[in-house]
């Protein structure tokens, strides 16, 4: 199992995890630790409890029950004994750790002037294990480039947990690196990583490989971040996750006006559903987006349902998971 993940688990849970079958250890997607409730993992799309002997079970009576001590220690280990450094993270409800893994946290909210100021009595953790899939964007890339060089404004549409951020990250990496063998130089890529999910920065340094020519604006609101990026780093292409708000639309229009391409993602089952959202549909109607990639889970995480052009004509069809 990943050493970055082991490092943040208290010894009691660490030992249980190490007793698990190696394949399970490797392919685990999430670890869910809830104080005084059964220890759970998500593996292969199934939710399973773990017993103290490291056995997977669906019976919650057999499961190991994390104690208050366990949750307290996790928090200690995540923060390096310095919880005072996590103010921003506690306000947002998640922490990115070494290796780009994300830990969602909930507890009791402390309010100030009607806003969440911080969390205390933290009792639940959701450890989401980051998995980079290097090279998955390669077959898709030719469809995103016109004349082999101009990056099309692209929207990746997918329901949750279908791998859209993973795909987005790899597109960023491939564009940034270029392909010297084919004589294609890399592009300047700017990532506005509002939720620290694409690059997984820890103290400003990306934990995921996002390419050599990539600048990351970490934890910055998308709309404002896109404008900042355009002004400060003159990128060839901007990468953003989960657009949908009114401001995002304005920022994307602005990016197009300054000649910067945008590759973004949006939640949705299909293009028709996304079209119902007024902010995104206006972008589609103005033909600002000229490529759409549709993802699903039909043949496993990251199934590409199709790639469409600006007139929503299908230009690529092969129902196959990129994994």
């Amino acid at each position: 199992m990943n050493k970055e993940i082991l490092a943040i688990l208290p010894i009691s849970i660490r030992q249980i995890m190490q007793k698990l079958n190696e394949i399970v250890q490797k392919d685990m997607e999430e670890i869910r630790i809830r104080e005084k409730r059964p220890l759970e993992i998500v593996y292969n799309n199934q939710h399973l409890f773990i017993s103290e002997a490291g056995k997977l079970t669906t019976n919650d009576q057999e499961a190991y029950i994390p104690t208050k001590e366990d949750t307290y220690k996790i928090l200690n280990l995540i923060s390096n004994h310095s919880i005072y450094r996590l103010e921003e993270e506690l306000k947002r409800g998640y922490i990115t750790i070494q290796g780009g893994h994300r830990i969602g946290i909930v507890g009791k909210a402390i309010m100030e002037n009607g806003m969440v100021k911080s969390l205390k009595d933290i009792s639940s953790f959701n450890i989401r294990i980051a998995k980079q899939k290097i090279g998955i964007a390669k077959p898709i890339l030719p469809f995103l480039l016109v004349d082999g060089n101009i990056i099309q404004n692209t929207l990746i549409i997918s329901p949750p947990m279908c791998g859209k951020t993973t795909l987005l990250r790899d597109i960023a990496r491939e564009l940034s690196r270029g392909n010297p063998q084919l004589g294609k130089s890399g592009k300047k890529v700017g990532i506005v990583d509002e939720r620290s999910e694409i690059a997984g920065c820890v103290e400003g340094v990306p934990q995921n490989d996002v390419g050599p020519r990539t600048d990351i604006l970490d934890a910055c609101p998308k709309a404002e971040g896109m404008m900042m990026m355009i002004r400060s780093m003159s990128p060839d292409v901007l990468i953003v996750d989960e657009i949908g708000r009114q401001e995002d639309t304005l920022a994307i229009t602005e990016a197009r006006n300054s000649g910067v391409s945008v590759i973004a993602t949006a939640h949705g089952l299909n293009i028709e559903e996304v079209m119902k959202r007024p902010t995104i549909s206006s972008l589609i109607q103005q033909e600002i987006f000229t490529r759409f990639i549709l993802l699903s889970r039909k043949k496993g995480v990251g199934t590409i349902e199709g790639i469409f052009d600006g007139q929503l004509r299908q230009i690529y069809f092969k129902e196959k998971s990129y994994v």
């Binding site: 200690n76 004994h81 919880i83 005072y84 911080s118």
Partner: peptide, 10 residues
């Protein structure tokens, strides 16, 4: 209380 609360509290 060392290290385990927010800055103000520390």
């Amino acid at each position: 209380t060392l290290g385990i609360t927010d800055k103000e509290d520390q």
